[in-house]
């Protein structure tokens, strides 16, 4: 899993002021599922992403709390409405203290 934590963000190529932009993001992450021994869940610190934060120019626009019921290599999509050009930053936090970031620049055409 050398690629763990790699973040990809997709935004439309043409964005006009006032558009509602659909952003798609993906992070490479194992999102461990619960192991069972004799039918009982094994108690340990499972490695999965529990928080996703989306910021635009430093202002928070979306936060997601996720559990291990989200698939491996989690994909998230959301909309947002930029009023000025700027930097979109998506941060993923996992239960082992990992922090993975991806950015995308929003420019108007």
């Amino acid at each position: 899993m050398a690629e763990i934590g790699k973040v990809r963000i997709r935004i439309p190529s043409n964005i006009k002021r006032g558009d509602v932009v659909r952003v798609r993001s993906l992070v490479i992450h194992p999102m461990e599922i619960v192991q069972r021994r004799d039918g009982k869940p094994v108690d340990k610190n499972y490695l999965f992403i529990h928080k996703v934060m989306v910021e635009y120019n430093g202002r928070e626009i979306l936060q997601a709390d996720t559990t291990q019921s989200i698939s491996e290599n989690p994909f998230f999509s959301f909309t947002f409405k930029p009023t000025e050009p700027g930097m979109l930053r998506i941060t993923f936090l996992d239960t082992h203290g990992g922090k993975y970031e991806g950015t995308a620049e929003i420019k108007f055409t």
Partner: peptide
């Protein structure tokens, strides 16, 4: 999952992959 939204999103639309 729980998504906390803000008015700046312009529309209340989210997507994810579930197990």
């Amino acid at each position: 999952a729980r998504f906390s939204l803000t008015p700046e999103m312009g529309a209340a639309a989210i997507g994810a992959n579930l197990r």
